[in-house]
Amino acid sequence: MVGIVGYGSYVPRYRIKISTIADQWGDNAATIEKGLMLQEKTVPGRDEDTITIAVEAAKNAVKRAGINPQDIGAVYIGSESHPYAVKPSGTVLIDALGIGPHVHVADFEFACKAGSEAMFVAYSHVKSGNMPYAMGIGADTSQGAPGDALEYSASAGGSAYIFGSENVIAEVIDTHSFTSDTADFWRREYQMYPRHGGRFTGEPAYFKHVLNATGIILEKSGMKASDFAHAVFHMPNGRFPLKAGKTFGFTDEQMKQGWIVNLMGNTYSGSSITGFSAIMDILKPGERALLISFGSGAGSDAFVFEATENITAVQNKAPKIREMLESNRTYLTYGQYVAYRRKIQFND
């Protein structure tokens, strides 16, 4: 059996309310909150970036897995906000956790699905017998241009998953990826903020890939919505994932645990997999969960998991994501947010 042996998440303590951003740009806060189904989003502290977020999430994953970090054979971090353009995030992480130096490390980028992509590769390594453990991480300090619709959702956080074949807590039952070249959202080199195709990000991009990936994995695995206790779909806003889930008959009840976007925002590479972390926090032995990511450009990774008896014992070994989201919050003004996010030019 191959599956998850440990998982962990991290979100910064800083928040900005959607209404604060709306007030700044003369948008109607109630309209935005209702339209995007968002209340607030996480903001990285001044000393946090994708690397530090990934490190905290990975430490929590190692705590839950209870393994020697030296036994991890591969570490992949997916992000669209790697702090360096050239120099891996993963090398900092392995040295911070005491993994390696005999370890394969790579940074992934695929818009919002780089995290699930990292999980996909980590899982494949273990399944092939290449190594006993591999870790896939998705973390971001997402960018959104000031005044752009993305600014309401782009947030910070991440999750880490360690795959293995012993003491598995959630077995991988099936996977599928659906990918095509679709220019719905991009960021060119040296640009601070991504650009997007507006409504083109919806039907031809998000829904096309998410619905195909979901439909095919359900068909491959011979399952239907009612076979799952929980499901999570990538959350660029509050509305899209619920609409996607309902297409296949998933109920609000099945989607509510993983739907953390209203409190967290869209953590890009960390979005769907952090929603999945919330599901892992409460998943019971024998229950199944569906994870559907989406990355612009565009593609969708689908995973079917089934919890084992081991899951209950590890859930309390590290902080749970909903507790992190609902406690210890520090709200920022727009001015503080701009300074924290370095949206203004400073002298060297």
Binding site: D47, E48, D49, T52, E56, P83, A96
Partner: peptide, 14 residues
């Protein structure tokens, strides 16, 4: 906890 301590200007190491 593990954090970024400083940046060496706009182009130096973190």
């Amino acid at each position: 906890v593990f954090r970024k301590i400083m940046e060496e200007g706009h182009s130096g190491i973190l």
